[in-house]
């Protein structure tokens, strides 16, 4: 880089066990992508570029959950290279859908998928990044919302707090003018206990929320479960509803285990 060029802050994108969808959100910022690249040095983003600039990095975006010994070590190296570490998506923030294996014997899972299970090494649990290193901000969603991603990066680069509400999907649902699917149609909906951020799309499409964004701040999970039971939901259906995209999130995990053991 020429000496007289003011250096741009460096951004790195890292992948662990995931579907790639959250980092794709960055490339899905079609209107803003080139402007972002003008203001931030995209220093390491293998999905998009062969070029890699060495750290340290001003911001690291981390996608995916920790499912192997190797990854459990790799995340510490990334933390050391990163001034700000932001997790993006449900996998990185709660363990993701692959955390469904946490509720089963992992050896059974390996045997189901692989003919020669001895080649496979996988940790017993799929865990979020914050179980391993300090995380500066957790951006929720499966997938994350791309505008929220731009907002969070912008906030950290400008040393302000990101404007990401922690209330429930119900707030967004009311604001969008949706009719409540639970009260009007009797469709079970996790919206009351789910973190906002998707703009209540499922109720807007006549279906119940299945909690891509995980628990909201102080969710009243018990009250919602009582309501589901009153609506006639079976124990197995209730467990399956909490064991979805964010099965390993504390509040959902506890609630599904409570009903399983009941």
């Amino acid at each position: 880089m020429p000496l007289n060029t003011p250096s741009k802050p460096k951004l790195a994108v890292w992948k662990f066990a995931s579907c790639d969808g959250c980092q794709l959100s960055l490339l899905d910022c079609e209107d803003a992508l080139l402007a972002i690249a003008d203001n931030i040095q995209i220093a390491s983003f293998p999905e998009a570029s062969r070029a890699v600039l060495r750290g340290p990095y001003e911001i690291s975006l981390v996608e995916g959950s920790i499912t192997s010994e190797h990854d459990a070590e790799r995340i510490h190296k990334i933390r050391r290279l990163s001034k700000t570490l932001i997790t993006i998506g449900a996998c990185a923030t709660s363990g993701g859908i692959q955390a469904l294996k946490n509720f089963k014997d992992v050896n059974d899972f390996v045997n189901i998928v692989y003919a020669k299970p001895e080649y496979i090494s996988s940790l017993k649990n799929s865990t979020p990044i914050a179980d391993h290193v300090k995380v500066d901000f957790e951006l929720r969603g499966c997938p994350i919302n791309k505008d929220a991603l731009v907002e969070v990066c912008n906030a950290y680069l400008n040393r302000r707090k990101p404007n990401i509400p922690t209330y429930s999907v119900c707030m967004e649902c009311k604001r969008r003018g949706n009719i409540c699917v639970m009260t009007s149609k009797g469709i079970p909906c996790l919206g009351p206990v789910t973190h906002a951020g998707c703009d209540a799309i499922c109720p807007a499409y006549n279906r119940g929320c299945y909690s891509c964004f995980g628990p909201s701040e102080d969710p009243n999970v018990k009250a919602l479960s009582n309501q589901f039971e009153k609506m006639g939901m079976s124990k197995d259906e209730l467990i399956r509803l909490y064991r979805g995209i964010n099965a390993n999130a504390e509040e959902f995990k506890n609630e599904s285990i409570f009903h399983e053991q009941k």
């Binding site: 066990a17 990854d71 899972f109 390996v110 189901i112 996988s122």
Partner: peptide
């Protein structure tokens, strides 16, 4: 070397609609 995520295993006992 992508870590495996075992979809076929945890689809078992899920409802067809999921």
């Amino acid at each position: 070397f992508e870590p495996p995520r075992f979809f076929e295993a945890f689809l078992r006992e899920r409802h067809y609609s999921e």
